[in-house]
Design a binder for these strands. Structure first.
Length: 594
DNA sequence: CGAATGGCACTTTCATAAAATTAA
DNA sequence: TTAATTTTATGAAAGTGCCATTCG
């Protein structure tokens, strides 16, 4: 019988990946495991101060017994890994360390150079110090820009943690079954112009075969070490530029897990695993040449999030996991016994504040407008958004909006257990979520416009302004994905910003085109009565704006919003804009020429 | 006996066509 | 009125967990 301590020893093996090719001439790759740092800048204090028992400790004391596989027991006896919390409210894996291998070898798992086999991913101790991974020297350096090691954020970490508390299980079938939760990441720090392949591979997290017995997962013999079939899933967008990868969430929602019988014909879409074995997914970033060949001069970067570990099963073993799946997976909605209730209010008896939580984080492209409000308010508002929205002293209406941010997932000083306990507070009444902000700005020519306020209406950016003659103007802007009149187009492949006022559409802007513009190609101001063609001519890209109406001066707002968005593009990914439906326009100037 | 499988009812996703809206 | 565009409607395909049955 192997207990966790044994597993710890096993995983401590220096040969982290069982790679027999260590001495090869390949450039080193970089392996990252989330550490205890809780912010981007490398603070060493995690969310579990030493003076407080971590969730894992608490759970271990109360529930875990030798030989059990309770997820909060960490390897090395450390507290649960506190992942870096960044200003965007995500959790980040970083500081790569060396590993090796190639994607091709992963596909077949037969090459002696394939780096997951026969080792185990869980090689890096939690909270290990900064490894000072190789600083990438890319072509961008030649232009004076420097792109270091990538930083990866697990977008739906809260949901993963919820499952992880009960030891995540993933169903596997012959045809392949999607993961839920699925892996979804944001990445930064790539060279926007370089090409990358991004893929996930899965490897045994420990050397055990497991069995669910007496309400617990217990080791039951040794793992079958030599599973056949794919162990990696290449993201379908691969290869693509760093700009592409950094622009939006990288989701692996279509990754399927299959058992090793009959799944081979679907190679490429399936990851083959074995039932009752525990696995650890890992994200890999590989720079490639334009022809798709791996750039051997650049190190591979790998990122491991321990909370994404799962046990492969052919049928759910733990009823808690089953309930979580039903609560959070929209496809399982039919099995919810109190469907109406959970869609109209929070049910504190449930395991999670379903459904307006991470469920929809999992389905951002298809999130329905009707659910967008509550979904947006508590799940995706980040510290960035907070920094952008500074409620005035009297703007108490914004407090509800902020409470869940400061008391749950976004607080670096808050323990994971506190996060769970605070979940009910994620629910925010869709009405008092207005944040007011006053600002007076001046443009270069001395024209003055006053931003009376902007607010989130739960779905759209509301911009109220007066022009220099005191006329009140109110505009709304939102990503097309959340256009209320066309929910079925949620998840459109071509994101756009829609802008309207008084119920009238003003126009839309294609973000890809906005991004392709140079700052110099855009006018610094537009006339109040500018016509679309005026704008188009001035920016020389006629298709930039598809204006529905021409008689509204809101076109200028749209243009300026796009200008602002382009400026902030590297900070705010499109998905983030979707999630938050807010953005920092505090320095947005409105120019109306009377 | 425990694990694996396949059918079932229910749900979401996606593609397409039809209908509605708007500008010229 | 016409053409272009947007919105709405529809159905097929695919993704869920449940459960009875089969397999080893």
């Amino acid at each position: 019988m192997t207990n966790l301590s044994d597993a710890d020893d096993f995983i401590d093996s220096e040969d982290s990946f069982g790679d027999g090719d260590k001495g090869s001439s390949r450039q080193s790759a970089q392996e990252t495991v989330c550490d205890n740092r809780h912010n981007f800048h490398g603070s060493t204090e995690g969310p579990y101060p030493s003076s407080q028992p971590s969730p894992s400790q608490a759970q271990s004391a109360s529930a875990a017994s030798p030989g059990t596989m309770f997820p909060h027991r960490t390897l090395h006896g450390a507290t649960y890994p506190a992942l870096a919390i960044t200003s965007s409210g995500h959790y980040m894996a970083h500081h790569p360390v060396v590993t090796q291998g190639s994607y091709n070898s992963l596909l077949t798992n037969t090459s002696p150079q394939g780096f997951p086999a026969p080792g185990y991913f869980y090689a890096q101790p939690y909270g290990h110090g900064h490894q000072g991974g190789a600083f990438h020297k890319t072509s961008a350096m030649q232009t004076g820009m420097v792109f270091g090691k990538a930083q990866v954020y697990l977008c739906n970490r809260a949901l993963w943690l919820t499952f992880h508390r009960h030891q995540t299980e993933m169903i596997i079938t012959k045809q392949g079954r999607r993961m839920f939760p699925f892996l979804s990441f944001n990445i930064s720090g790539l060279d926007p112009t370089a090409n990358y392949n991004i893929f996930v591979d899965v490897s045994l997290a420990d050397p055990n075969h497991w069995r669910f017995q007496g309400g617990q997962w217990v080791p039951c013999g040794k793992a079958e070490s030599n599973g056949t079939g794919n162990k990696a899933y290449m993201h379908p967008d691969s290869p693509n530029t760093g700009a592409h990868w950094m622009r939006q969430e990288i989701s692996f929602g279509k990754l399927k897990l299959a058992n090793n019988k009959g799944a081979l014909e679907s190679a490429g879409q399936m990851v083959v695993v074995q039932s009752l074995h525990r696995y650890q997914p890992r994200l890999n970033v590989v720079e490639v040449h334009e022809d798709g060949a791996e750039n051997a001069s650049q190190p591979r970067q790998s990122f491991t999030f321990p909370e994404t570990q799962f046990v492969a099963v052919t049928a759910y073993q733990n009823t808690d996991i089953t309930q979580l799946k039903i609560d959070h997976n929209p496809f399982a909605k039919g099995f919810r016994d109190n469907y109406d209730k959970i869609y109209t209010g929070y049910d504190s008896d449930r395991l999670t504040p379903s459904p307006s939580d991470s469920t929809y984080a999992q389905f951002v492209p298809g999130a329905r407008y009707a659910l967008a409000n509550s979904f947006l308010q508590h799940q995706f508002v980040s510290t960035y958004a907070k920094s952008c929205f500074r409620p005035s002293a009297g703007a108490t209406s914004g407090l509800d909006y902020n409470v869940p941010l400061t008391n749950s997932m976004l607080s670096p000083q808050t323990s994971e257990e506190d996060t769970m306990a605070a979940s009910p507070r994620w629910f925010v009444t869709p009405t008092n979520n207005r944040l007011d902000y006053a600002s007076r700005t001046n443009d270069a020519t001395g024209n003055t416009a006053t931003l009376l306020s902007y607010a989130t209406a739960g779905k759209a950016l509301q911009l109220s302004a007066t022009d220099s003659s005191g006329r009140a103007l109110t505009y709304y802007a939102e990503p097309t994905d959340f256009a209320p009149t066309s929910p079925q187009y949620c998840g459109a492949s071509s994101p756009a910003l829609s802008c309207w006022t008084n119920g009238h559409a003003i126009g839309t802007a294609d973000f890809d085109e906005v991004l392709s513009l140079s700052k110099e190609s855009l006018p610094t101001s537009v006339s109040e009565d500018a016509k679309p063609q005026d704008i188009s001519e001035s920016i020389a890209i006629p298709s930039l704006f598809k204006c529905v109406y021409t008689r509204y001066d809101g076109l200028s707002v749209l243009l300026l919003l796009c200008l602002q968005m382009r400026e902030q593009w590297n900070k705010l990914k499109m998905k983030d804009i979707h999630k938050r439906t807010t953005m920092d326009i505090s320095n947005l100037n409105l120019f109306f020429n009377p």
